[in-house]
Design a protein around this nucleic acid. Structure first.
Lengths: 217, 217
DNA sequence: CTCATCCATGACCACATGGTAAAATAAGCG
DNA sequence: CGCTTATTTTACCATGTGGTCATGGATGAG
């Protein structure tokens, strides 16, 4: 009677209750923000629990260890960042449109998910201990495809002959800087906080620079 | 007889012995590297002492607290980073040359002081708690001067009408990325470590992009 | 030599913090 | 209702770590 035992297994998922779902999300959001401000070691479980409105022990009930919680935060972040990470995913009829949309997408991520971007950045700076494998299996192949696409454009005479890899490094860094280094940027601009306006100007500048700098159109 | 008391004051500095000088440097270098890899909270004094080849208590003899040590590391880093931070400091007869040298300088910093750059980056990402004041009093005014210079160039028709601030953000981020995000960059290029060659290609790419993208010459 | 100051070590502590164990309470389902 | 399971609280512990204190050597100027 293997069926009866299967039934039990099928019934189990009921356990993922609404409460659990909700609390896990609250915790993850609190953790993301605190990790982005103080790093992994600089953030105490107690502090996360406080921000999430519960006791530390209760937090541990939902995430059995700090490291596990951190990895979950990282995975959530990757889901966000990866989605529009590749050129291929961009809409557009011409190379120029595709590149423009790519830059816009990446600025949008900095605008809307600054904390996620920061946690990711710290992780990379520290040598990507948790991410190395993921980057190797997921991101690097996608990048290589994008590079091939750019090389095709170059071969077709659509744009100047430049090193595609460094083009991507430039786009990544100069779009992420509006999230990761927002404190320096806003200080330089003499504002408390970056406004929509600033992101728009950034997009405009970068688009101009890339399109014209690559000799497109 | 104020002279005699002055003599004593003058004699005091003898205390800064060779040993102290040497050990402080060893400690600072060890600390810089470890802070860049694990952050402030992720680095134990014990670990720094070990790397510096002495006991923790002895390290504390030279730097009476961890925070003080960290601030000294930061100050050393600032000395390095600030030196060639401004356009004004660059040699060159034409705007084009000046910009080219500026990019080259900043890539050189990433090449030669990756650890310093990383510690600085983490500090900025975390909201620049220690650096805010310094940035406000030193860096922001220098940047404003540089912006004025670029605006003059624009007025003279030497280059396209772009937002100078975002130009600097772009140069800063895309040069620093070769230090801060070196793990991601080298992974993308399929190497263990970045080589001189890579820095040269980066310089070449960025120079091409900026000069052509700004419509210079 | 010698005496003050610098350098180094060993023993120790206060405290923050990640994590455990167990008991109490709430919720859902037959 | 009663029984199971999910959630929360209370009490506690082990460990890592920044920092102190007292003491013992080393060193250099006079």
């Amino acid at each position: 009677m293997p069926n009866s035992s299967e039934e039990i297994v099928i019934n189990k998922p009921r356990r993922r209750s609404r409460i659990r779902e909700a609390h896990e999300n609250t915790i993850l959001r609190a953790a993301e923000q605190l990790f982005s401000q103080n790093g992994y070691h600089g953030t105490a479980l107690e502090t996360i629990a406080e921000k999430a409105g519960m006791s530390k022990q209760n937090l541990i009930y939902y995430f059995s260890s700090k490291e596990l919680l951190y990895q979950r935060v990282l995975r959530n972040i990757l889901d966000i960042l990866i989605e529009k990470m590749t050129l291929m995913d961009q809409l557009g009829d011409s190379p120029r449109e595709i590149l423009t949309n790519y830059i816009k997408s990446k600025i949008e991520i900095s605008r809307h998910y600054p904390n996620a971007s920061k946690v990711f950045a710290i992780e990379i700076i520290n040598g990507a201990p948790y991410l190395k494998k993921y980057l190797q299996t997921h991101l690097t192949p996608a990048l290589d495809d994008d590079v091939k696409l750019v090389e095709k454009w170059i071969a077709e005479g659509v744009m100047d002959r430049v090193d595609p890899y460094h083009l991507f490094f430039m786009i990544w860094s100069s779009t992420q800087t509006y999230a990761d280094f927002s404190s320096q940027v806003s200080l330089s601009l003499g504002k408390e906080k970056l406004e929509d306006n600033d992101f728009d100007r950034a997009t405009e500048f970068l688009t101009h620079l890339v399109i014209k700098g690559l000799g497109m159109k």
